[in-house]
């Protein structure tokens, strides 16, 4: 399997390697390196930040290291066990949202791009309109809706709008991808007597792994750090998510930056973990998609 994969996917590195050391390659990798430093530096910076005192952080010097390592920032961040239950809530909310977005958006995108029906374009246009709805401007109407369907102060008050707000971009990406898949595949499937649900499940979904992963990542990032909507619709401590923890260190006339840094590190760890896992899947997924069928 992996062999056929390496044949199917373009592997230009092989050709370059054959040439061995080259001037061009040095420049390219030098460039990669510089970019790597600039893009990874904030991670390191955040780690250093998270063990500094408030005064050191606020002094705003780029090069300064902490005089002594402030582990107390981490104990403050973990104080009262809030981190763990916020984390659990974030995981629940984010994963339910991700699953729903992918399911709903891929179904809709499939229908829009592959079914023969009149209103496909209009439906697509309606979805497109939602690409750029500023979340802040919907808070008030959403409050009224949620009040009336009695979901305020439940996880649904976060999950439902998170799904809804991710749908436009998810449909956009999924349908953009599905349009690139040749129609022959369902033609042959129909000839084999497969119904639409089977085509969707066993042909479309498997080849759609790359866009699904892209949608996963986008959804994850947007939902994991979301605060405005959650803060507006959730008042119960038991339901609060990680961003509440970050902002809890902001008081009226003081901010505990060190604890924020520590909390951000603790909050980013699972993200980075999940991300690197998903990133692995993207390439693998693409290879699998290319080979199957």
């Amino acid at each position: 399997m992996s062999q056929s994969a390496s044949i199917a996917v373009r592997e230009p590195a092989v050709q370059t390697r054959r040439r061995g050391f080259s001037f061009k390659k040095t420049i390219v990798f030098g460039f990669f390196g510089v970019l790597l430093v600039t893009q990874l530096y904030p991670l390191l910076w955040l780690l250093i930040y998270s063990v500094k005192t408030n005064e050191e952080i606020l002094s705003g010097s780029f090069f300064a290291l902490p005089a002594s390592v402030q582990w107390s920032n981490y104990s403050n961040a973990l104080a009262g066990g809030r981190y763990w239950h916020y984390l659990l809530n974030s995981v629940i909310v984010t994963s339910v949202t991700m699953v729903c977005v992918i399911l709903l958006a891929s179904l809709a995108a499939f229908a829009i791009t592959r079914f023969r029906w009149k209103y496909g374009h209009i439906v697509m246009l309606i979805f497109l309109m939602g690409l750029m709805i500023p979340l802040q401007s919907t808070l008030l109407p959403l409050m009224l809706i949620f009040k009336n369907i009695h979901v305020l102060n439940t996880r649904w008050a976060m999950i439902l709008p998170y799904i809804a707000f991710q749908i436009p971009i998810a449909v956009f990406i999924m349908s953009g991808f599905l349009r690139t898949i040749p129609h022959e595949i369902e033609e042959s499937a129909i000839m084999d007597g497969a119904n639409v649900f089977r085509i969707f499940r066993s042909i479309i979904l498997p080849v759609s792994v790359p866009p699904i992963m892209t949608v996963c990542i986008l959804t994850f990032i947007n939902v994991w750090n979301e605060y405005i909507l959650a803060a507006t619709f959730i008042s119960k401590e038991a339901l609060k998510t990680l961003p509440f923890g970050v902002y809890s260190f902001v008081s009226q006339y003081s901010v505990n930056y060190g604890a924020i840094g520590a909390f951000l590190v603790l909050g980013a760890l699972p993200v980075i973990l999940v991300y690197f896992l998903l990133a692995e899947k993207i390439t693998k997924g693409m290879v699998a998609g290319a080979v199957k069928g």
Binding site: L139, L140, M143, L144, K147, Y227, I228, A231, T232, S235, K236, E237, F244, Y247, S248, V250, S251, Q252
Partner: peptide
């Protein structure tokens, strides 16, 4: 206790008040 940072509390109360 619904403890929020000041800016967020202002915005939340405004939204709540409207409904």
């Amino acid at each position: 206790l619904d403890s929020l940072n000041t800016d967020q509390q202002k915005q939340k109360l405004k939204t709540q008040a409207a409904s």
